[in-house]
Amino acid sequence: MRPMPHDHSDHPHALLPPDPALRVKALETILTRKGLIDPAALDELIDTYENRIGPKNGARVVARAWADPMFRAALLEDATRVVADLGFYGRQGEHMVVVENTPQQHNMVVCTLCSCYPWPLLGIPPGWYKSDAYRARAVREPRKVLADFGVTLPEGTSVRVWDSTAEVRYLVLPMRPEGTDGLSEDALADLVTRDSMIGTDIPKVPS
C-alpha cells in the first residue's frame, strides 16, 4: 500500500511545517541574505527566553525585598536600576515599576494595549495574560477576574489595576505570607508564584 502523504510512521518527505512557520522562515531567509539579521542571535534569544529567564528571576527579587528592607526600598524607588544591577536581561529599554501590595491595596497588572510585560523578571507572558478576555475584564471587573483565579480579597482591600505599556512595565510585590519568619531567601522565593507577581494570585503559605 502506498504510504499516505502525512502518515507519521512513514513520511516520504520531510514534514511540511504549517503556513505561518514557512512565512517566518521566508522572512528569516530574506533578512539573513540581506545581512540584516544574524541567525545565531535568533537561536541565542530563543534559548534565553526558553531556558534562562522566567518567573524565577522575579521570585528572587520578591524574596530579597521581603528579607532586606533596604533592598525593598530601593526596588520601590527605582526598580529599573535595581533589576539592571542584578544583571537580568532586558534590552527593550523598558522602565520597570514595582507596586507593593498592602492590607489596604491589592495591585494587579494588565496590558490593554497588547501584552507588555516585565520580561527580564517574568519571561514570556502566559496565554491568558494575552487573551482579549483578561485584557478587557481586568480593568472593568478586577474582583470578578480575581475570583476566577481563586483570589478573594477582604472587603476593606481596594484593587488597583496598572496598565503596562511598551515603556512602563509593572511587577507586583506581594505581601509576605504569615509564618515565614526565619526562612531563607531561597525558601521564600519558592513561595512566590508567577501569577502573584502579576497580581492574580497570592503567595503560597508554607506547609
Binding site: A21, V24, L27, L31, I37, L42, L45, I46, Y49, I124
Partner: peptide, 10 residues
C-alpha cells in the same frame, strides 16, 4: 519562538 526572536532581534 522564531517570530518572537526575529522581532526582538530586529
Amino acid at each position: 519562538a522564531q517570530v518572537f526572536a526575529l522581532t526582538v532581534h530586529l
